[in-house]
């Protein structure tokens, strides 16, 4: 695992849910919400959870303005680099959400940075290898970085089965062959953990923190 972990991907791929679970499981010091694209279901809703877990949440929102859709970035987003502590960065969706990485270009040490592409193969725009490659290229061009690994986050929310994860893995294996990238992590809903067999990548157990229990 690298010190700086950027999570990128298609919107609705489960980036934010993965990012919070990943940050908690690796004991990261910072979770940085750089999503200025999405108006709902953002990491910034998780202040209390982060505080309880000594995870410092840096949000792109103005204080107390959960309903803001202004593309505002807190100046604290640079703190993880100055303090040089393990951090997870939750990017907004697609090329528009990746562009923000350019402002960190001078601070990024390639040896210490991962750009992880989060994929849910049940999303229309990332259902086949060629579509995924197309989106990865747009994201890399927009953000000025190279993706370093894949996250198999294939899911149908609470209806997900082990078979669904394997379905995603098969598509991502084709992507591995074509791009030379590896499946580094697999996001698995915690309830599904007892039912799963082997999977490529380190398993990150997922709790759906952003989704209300009644939803």
């Amino acid at each position: 695992m690298k010190k700086m972990n950027f999570i990128t991907g298609h919107y609705g791929s489960g980036k934010s849910e993965f990012a919070i679970n990943f940050a908690l499981s690796i004991g990261a010091a910072f979770l940085v919400d750089l999503d200025i694209v999405n108006p709902y279901f953002r990491t910034r809703e998780l202040e209390d959870l982060c505080a309880e877990n000594n995870l410092r949440l840096i949000s792109s929102s103005l204080t107390g303005a959960l309903g803001s859709d202004l593309p505002y970035i807190a100046k604290e987003v640079f703190l993880p680099f100055y303090e040089n502590l393990t951090s997870v960065f939750d990017l907004g969706g697609e090329a528009a959400g990746a562009r923000i990485v350019r402002q960190f270009s001078e601070l990024l040490d390639p040896q210490e940075t991962d750009f992880l592409f989060c994929v849910n193969c049940y999303r229309e725009e990332t259902a086949a290898p060629e579509k995924i490659i197309g989106m990865m290229e747009l994201i890399e061009k927009s953000g000025g970085f190279k993706i370093t690994g894949l996250i198999n986050n294939t899911n149908l929310l609470r209806e997900t089965s082990y078979g669904d994860l394997l379905y995603g893995e098969k598509i991502l294996e084709e992507l591995e062959r074509r791009t030379g990238l590896r499946i580094v992590y697999a996001g698995v809903h915690e309830k599904l953990l007892p039912e799963i067999g082997e999977l490529k990548g380190e398993i990150i157990p997922l709790k759906l923190y952003l989704r209300k229990t009644w939803l």
């Binding site: 919107y11 609705g12 849910n120 049940y122 999303r123 229309e124 259902a127 899911n155 149908l156 929310l157 209806e159």
Partner: peptide
């Protein structure tokens, strides 16, 4: 097969 969609996308596709 079912797919996973965001509400607004689903409205547009429908």
């Amino acid at each position: 097969k079912k797919i996973l969609m965001k509400g607004n996308e689903a409205i547009a596709r429908a």
